[in-house]
């Protein structure tokens, strides 16, 4: 039995805006074990990033969590004190952002950004570090992220680095304080495909070496396939399906998952891939039952009334759909 690292139970979250509440997360269920690699896929605007930011407690100020728990090693992050949250951020969990250019403060040298992260992530664990020790740690982290000439990079401003280098710098930053869990929010999406591939490989190697768990959010279904053990599929604020990577790609159960796979362009024939008809629901007034119902080819009367819950289909394959109950 693997040790459970993080578990999200029934997370509901609304965004308060001028016109009212956007009911975004609608009972998210998620878990990840120690050392496990988990992928998270779904359309844009499904709440993937919102879920991850709930874990880091870095939600925008208009976000309201109405129900649910996020248990990290058995302790609820949502009710933890600010000190405990800071300690988690400094030592246990870290996050890589989608756009490395936006994630690096443009008016500071890389060294300054690094030294604060190192200083505070180490302060809680042991004694204070000297300047030289901090620099040494920064150089080590940059080297680990396969960046050449780390001493020079530390003296650079983000504007002086290429997109791929910035992403590697972000990864290096995340390595410092991610002893248990690394959340990668579409790393490399803004880069070209060859660099994206390099970045994903690098991430895969790093977590393998360190035994860190990783949550990889991605639009690149192919990239997820090669890297992770299990994949969650998210739609409109719900997890709709989870399975071991191979099972999911060979035997998708939820209609949304199979539709999602059809959207992937193929190199050999087939022409332009199909898009999923319709669009994600309006979060002001989402469908009462299953949120995918209005777009689903297999919709049944019950789908409009009740929200389906995860049903175990064996071998860690779970699906939230009335077709299987």
């Amino acid at each position: 039995m693997q040790e459970r690292l993080l578990e999200i139970q029934g997370l509901h979250l609304n965004y308060k805006v001028y016109e009212g509440y956007l009911k975004v997360l609608n009972g998210v269920e998620f878990n990840i074990d120690k050392g496990e690699k988990v992928g998270l896929i779904g359309e844009s605007g499904c709440g993937k990033t919102t879920t991850m930011r709930s874990i880091m407690r870095t939600l925008p100020s208009n976000a309201v969590i109405t129900a649910g728990k996020i248990l990290f090693k058995g302790k609820d992050i949502l009710t933890a004190s600010m000190d405990e949250v800071q300690s988690l951020r400094r030592n246990n969990i870290s996050m890589i952002f989608q756009d490395p250019t936006a994630a690096l403060n443009p008016v500071f040298k890389i060294e300054e950004i690094f030294s604060d992260i190192i200083r505070f992530s180490v302060r809680t664990s042991s004694k204070k570090l000297t300047k030289d020790e901090i620099k040494l740690k920064a150089v080590e982290a940059l080297k680990a992220a396969a960046l050449p000439d780390p001493e020079r990079i530390l003296q650079n401003y983000p504007i002086q680095l290429s997109g791929g280098m910035r992403q590697r710098v972000c990864i290096a930053m995340a390595l410092i304080s991610s002893n248990d869990l690394l959340i990668a929010d579409e790393p490399g999406t803004n880069l070209d495909v060859t660099i994206e591939d390099q970045i994903l490989r690098l991430l895969g190697n790093l977590v393998n070496e360190r035994g860190t768990s990783i949550i990889l959010i991605s639009h690149a279904l192919g990239a997820v396939k090669g890297l992770v053990d299990r994949v969650y599929v998210m739609y409109a604020g719900n997890m709709v399906e989870v399975a071991k990577t191979d099972d999911l790609f060979s035997d998708p159960l939820h209609p949304y998952t199979s539709n999602l796979f059809k959207t992937v362009p193929k190199l050999t024939g087939g022409g332009i891939p199909e898009a999923i008809k319709g669009r994600i629901p309006d979060y002001f007034d989402p469908p009462k039952g299953c949120r995918f119902c209005p777009r689903c080819d297999h919709a049944m009367p019950i789908c409009e009334k009740e929200t389906p819950t995860f049903k175990d289909m064996g071998d860690k394959h779970e699906v939230a759909c009335f077709l299987y109950s």
Binding site: T58, S87, A103, N105, S121, T124, M173, I176
Partner: peptide, 17 residues
């Protein structure tokens, strides 16, 4: 609202800093 602030927060840099 910028990512670099969220990023610094998520690394546990104190709020005053």
């Amino acid at each position: 609202k910028k990512d670099y602030i969220t990023s610094a927060t998520s690394f546990g840099v104190p709020e005053s800093r």
